[in-house]
């Protein structure tokens, strides 16, 4: 028999005529982009609930406009630019909630909608859509709005307001954020607000600035579901506490305690939900540590010495810009590659 002769293939088995022949691995983890985004949205809910509790219908209105405009502009961005993404991947929903959390409750509707446009079309789809953006979309929108309309972006509702507020009535119900009070009048001016108020959210601020406790709860959920890893929140918050702590120890009369700094402003929201944005943060553990320390350092410096009372947004955006460089420089040594010290031997 010649070597290439066909053999009798034996008796037929009860198998289908066509089997799928695909390359391994033949199993996939259950997590998808949409499920990851959904868990982020769920983790944001406690913080959203607290903002609704303290700022009432104004907060609901702002949040609804933010989410709807982000979903709408995601669609517009995809259609206009033909970029990657889908409303089904839920990333626009997360951006929408985060945008809402970054705005004062009384933000005018057109301003919120402009934020949605900036976040989705400019910050995301002009860069290529899902996964290609360099800067966190919601933060880009916040900083744009802050610079474009500084008055509306720093008009803060006093907690405890329930109904909608008219333009005329606004003056009567506004207050300031703890960090703004300190920036204006020093630590003494904040004496009326305790750590418990700041922890629970009984202070003025953006929707997502008020309750450290609710945001922490969401963060614990994300850690438990392994959606985010611990290093960014821990190093971000830790570095901020360290920087502000040094200033506080040097001059407690002028600078607020690290506890105040950790519990107020956008730090919790930023460290747990914004700096951990996967698209705009480094991919390796070491890279994320560098990124988080950079965020904390910049936040502390801006809060202590900068012109703005709050620095979380600027810090994260600046570190977003540094992310490609961090990823480029922080390539881990592969398995079995000797470290430098061992090579020297």
């Amino acid at each position: 028999m010649s070597a290439d002769a066909k053999l009798d293939t034996g008796k037929a088995a009860a198998a289908p005529e066509r089997l799928i022949v695909s390359p391994s691995p033949h199993l996939r983890s259950k997590d998808t982009t949409a499920s990851i985004m959904m868990w982020v949205a769920i983790a944001l809910l406690p913080g959203v609930a607290v903002s609704f509790y303290y700022f009432g219908l104004e907060a609901v209105r702002t949040m609804v406009i933010a989410v709807v405009s982000c979903l709408a502009f995601e669609f517009v961005g995809m259609k206009l630019l033909g970029t990657a993404g889908s409303l089904k991947d839920m990333s626009a929903l997360v951006t929408g909630i985060l945008l809402g959390m970054n705005l004062p409750p009384t933000a005018p509707w057109w301003m919120v909608a402009a934020g949605g446009l900036i976040a989705m079309v400019v910050a995301k789809h002009l860069f290529g859509g899902l996964g290609s953006n360099v800067f966190n979309p919601a933060l880009t929108a916040r900083v744009f709005l802050l610079i474009a309309w500084p008055v509306q972006m720093t008009t803060w509702l006093k907690p405890g307001t329930t109904g909608l507020v008219t333009a005329e009535g606004l003056q009567a119900v506004t207050g300031a954020t703890p960090l703004a009070i300190i920036k204006e009048g020093g630590v003494g001016a904040l004496s009326g607000t305790g750590a418990i108020d700041m922890l629970m959210g009984n202070v003025g601020g953006s929707l997502g600035e008020v309750s450290a406790a609710a945001l922490l709860l969401g963060g614990i959920l994300l850690l438990a579901k392994r959606i985010i890893t611990w290093e960014i929140p821990v190093f971000f918050i830790g570095t901020t506490a360290l920087v502000t702590g040094i200033a506080w120890m040097a001059n407690p009369a002028q600078y607020a305690s690290p506890l105040t700094h950790v519990l107020t402003g956008g730090l919790m929201l930023g460290a747990i939900f914004m700096a951990t944005d996967m698209v705009t943060s480094p991919i390796s553990f070491g890279g994320r540590v560098v990124f988080a320390v950079g965020c904390g350092l910049l936040t502390g410096l801006i809060r202590l010495f900068g012109g703005y009372p709050e620095g979380v947004s600027f810090a994260i955006l600046l570190m977003n810009a540094a992310t490609p460089l961090i990823d480029h420089l922080m390539v881990p040594k592969t398995f079995g590659t000797p470290r430098k010290a061992e090579v020297a031997k």
Binding site: S22, D31, T33, I36, A84, G85, S86, D89, S91, G129, L130, G131, S132, T229, M278, V279, T280, S281, P282, I283, S284, F285, R288
Partner: peptide, 14 residues
Amino acid sequence: YQAASCIRCGRCVS
């Protein structure tokens, strides 16, 4: 089998 956009989550790295 339908690849979507990479969201740079870093799960492949870890």
